[in-house]
Computed example of a mutant assay.
Amino acid sequence: MKTSDILADAFGRISESVHSALDGIDAQRLLARADPESNTIAWLIWHLTRVQDDHIADLLDTGQIWITAGWVDRFRLPFPPEDTGYGHSSDDVAQVVVSSPELLLGYFDEVSDRTAHFVSGLADDELDRIVDERWDPPVTLGVRLVSVLADDLQHAGQAAFLRGILDRENR
């Protein structure tokens, strides 16, 4: 198995988790919180997609889909276009109001498709390329991709967990 196959499988698992968390959900549950300070499913999916979009765009040296494909205008959130949700407060989380899962999935799927295309074409020797010299040691392409995977899988799992809680409450 090639490294690109492993990466494609891993990013595909994020997609499966996101689709599962949003399948059949209504707007009310998208914005529900386990407690007043916790994240919503809408924020979790938006944030994990923004992080993936930001980091993959940087690796490709291209614009973020959020901006170039007009998702920023469709979501109409009160944040600067480059905001990914990193460091958001509870009040910021509350401002990520999304009226439908289709909006989240549309943006996520476009980002996910670009990521899948990118990682499927990677050769093993490319993973050692330095992509960020602001850290010590500098960050390689492989390390950056694992970082995005870890962050996105964590947030997808949180969304799935919250969805399970909400579904049980509504039985």
Rank of each mutant, 00 (worst) to 15 (best):
R134Q: 15
D152V: 15
D151K: 01
A34M: 12
G121I: 06
A150R: 14
A32S: 13
V18H: 00
S15W: 10
L122R: 03
D9C: 15
G85E: 02
G106P: 02
F79I: 09
W43G: 03
G24K: 06
G142M: 01
A32Y: 05
R163M: 02
V72Y: 11
T84R: 04
G85C: 09
L122N: 00
P138Y: 11
I67E: 02
L7K: 02
A42Y: 04
L59H: 06
V18Q: 02
A159D: 00
L31Q: 12
I165T: 13
A150T: 12
T49H: 07
L149Q: 00
D58Y: 15
G87T: 09
I56C: 03
T62I: 14
R171T: 14
V96H: 08
R114Q: 07
W46F: 15
I56K: 00
D124N: 14
H19E: 03
F118Y: 09
G106C: 15
L149W: 01
F161P: 09
P36L: 12
L7Y: 04
F75H: 04
N170E: 10
A116L: 05
D26I: 11
H19K: 05
D167N: 14
G164C: 06
F108W: 06
P80C: 10
H19W: 05
G12Q: 03
D125M: 11
T68H: 12
L145K: 06
I56A: 05
H155N: 05
W135K: 10
I6N: 06
L104T: 01
S90E: 07
G85R: 06
L103S: 11
Y107M: 06
D9Q: 11
P80V: 12
W43P: 13
A8E: 09
I165G: 06
S15M: 13
D92E: 12
N170I: 11
I45A: 08
I130F: 06
H19A: 05
D125Q: 15
Q154C: 14
F79Q: 00
D92M: 13
L77G: 04
I14M: 05
A10Y: 13
D167C: 14
Q158I: 10
H155K: 04
V98E: 01
G142K: 02
I67R: 10
L22K: 03
P81E: 02
P138C: 12
D92P: 09
I130H: 04
R168A: 03
A160H: 14
D92L: 08
L162T: 01
H155V: 03
D125Y: 12
F11P: 00
L166V: 08
F79S: 01
V148W: 00
A160W: 08
D54Q: 11
L22M: 05
E16M: 13
R50C: 02
D91E: 12
L48D: 01
S20H: 10
A150D: 09
A123R: 11
A150Y: 09
R76Q: 13
H155P: 00
L31C: 14
A21M: 04
F79P: 01
A116T: 04
F11R: 00
V51C: 04
A159Y: 01
R50L: 00
E126H: 07
H47N: 04
A69E: 09
L7N: 02
F161I: 12
R129Y: 11
I130Q: 11
H88V: 15
